[in-house]
Write a protein that binds this DNA or RNA. Structure first.
Lengths: 230, 230
DNA sequence: GACGGGAAATGACTTATGTCACACTCGGAC
DNA sequence: GTCCGAGTGTGACATAAGTCATTTCCCGTC
């Protein structure tokens, strides 16, 4: 109910600073939707209707080539928002978005967001920071795609995963890979087979240790060094 | 002098809505700098000190690989601003910026920009739109690098140039290429030689007509179709 | 404990892209 | 006009990456 919605909104960077009353009003106008894994929230090019707040789960924004290959632009998790760009510049959705796993979102009409921005400049400022961060990551991705090879991109991805969900152990950081090689490939801009080989290579070079879908990074600094160099 | 500065600020999307007094105050705190072609404004990773307003010329923001290859993230021209990201999120400069040609800029301390945002929510909103647009283009670039081949990326680049500076003639749109193949390569994520070959290929396929550094697009729709397909 | 399906690994092959080397063109400076 | 240097064009070659086909592994279900 509304209480949950309020709590969910409160968890976002966009709305965390709003007072109780405004939050409640917003929550009443937000409505909840649930998506199964790989279900599509919206398609690139479609006229944008509103903002999505992720309550639970994860959403990927991506583009598809004619032959069906996907390139993920960014992935957002609980507490993040999706589709700010078209909400703020009144254009179409720039990418297609789909649930990475079972996901619950709150949908907020873009006019509600826009009104809110006019009344609460703090939201605009928060949105600015969110977009700035996204732009930084997007530039990173461009750099990686253009100037690094697959092995390095994979290593960078693993380092990011380690930071996000890794657990320290006696022999370095341990990660439980929740995504398939296919999904990883879509994120780092490659294909399944090449990712598989890159994993083998990293292990062979002693930079990671693979145990099924679990892996560990014995020496984070070494892996970082590998990412950094030509 | 200050009058010029005011006029320059007035031309930007960020400050166009400011009233005369505020503009004058801002102009007095902004100071002018000039850069020769390829002179560096700031380097990626450096602590960001402020915002650059381009008065005249053009600036490219790019990243460099260890072996010296450049990937341009975006290019901005007169009336645009550079380094909004670090100004708004208080981080380091995300890319290196250099003048594409002789360029004059106004430098504004980031604290001045931040204060202004608090006093004039319209600026924040304008900044949001600027970043949203930049994010759209950045996502396009990611898609292009990952899912399109060089020929298509070049074609897309030419279409963009045609829209920006092309002149209609009897046999289609005519463009004067101001940049070298090297520069084009850095923008579309490739190298000089491959760009050269891609040009030859496009001409051979009848999609463009090359006359030195001038070229024309006889059939814009055909070129667009070429970009669009696998 | 056997079975079945999705994912992973892997060998063989193709290809786009990048690298290197060198010749050519063009436009300005003198 | 000639010289020079930057930029372009191109052939020959190297290689990372992508494609295809097949086998193997893993995990949950019966």
């Amino acid at each position: 109910m509304t209480l949950d919605k309020i709590a969910a909104l409160k968890r976002t960077r966009l709305f965390e600073e709003l007072d109780e009353n405004t939050l409640r009003a917003l929550a009443e106008r937000a409505f909840e939707r649930r998506f199964q894994k790989d279900e599509v929230l919206f398609v690139a090019g479609e006229e944008a209707r509103g903002l999505y707040v992720i309550v639970e789960g994860a959403v990927r924004a991506f583009r598809v080539s004619l032959d069906g290959r996907e390139q993920v632009i960014h992935v957002e998790r609980a507490g993040a928002t999706i589709a700010e760009v078209p909400v703020f510049d009144d254009g179409a959705y720039p990418s297609t978005a789909a649930a990475e796993e079972f996901t619950t979102v709150l949908f907020i009409d873009k006019r509600d967001v826009q009104h809110l921005c006019l009344q609460h400049p703090k939201i605009t400022l928060a949105a600015l920071k969110v977009l700035a961060g996204r732009l930084r990551r997007c530039a990173e991705l461009v750099e990686a795609l253009s100037l690094r090879e697959v092995g390095q991109r994979l290593a960078r991805f693993l380092l990011a995963e380690a930071r996000r969900s890794g657990a320290p152990t006696e022999n370095g950081i341990s990660i439980n890979l929740s995504q398939t090689n296919q999904q990883i490939a879509a994120r780092i801009g490659s294909v399944r087979e090449v990712v598989s080989r890159a994993f083998t290579r990293l292990q062979h070079d002693g930079l990671i240790i693979i145990e099924g879908r679990k892996l560990s990074i014995p020496d984070e600094a070494a892996l970082e060094k590998f990412v950094g160099q030509a």
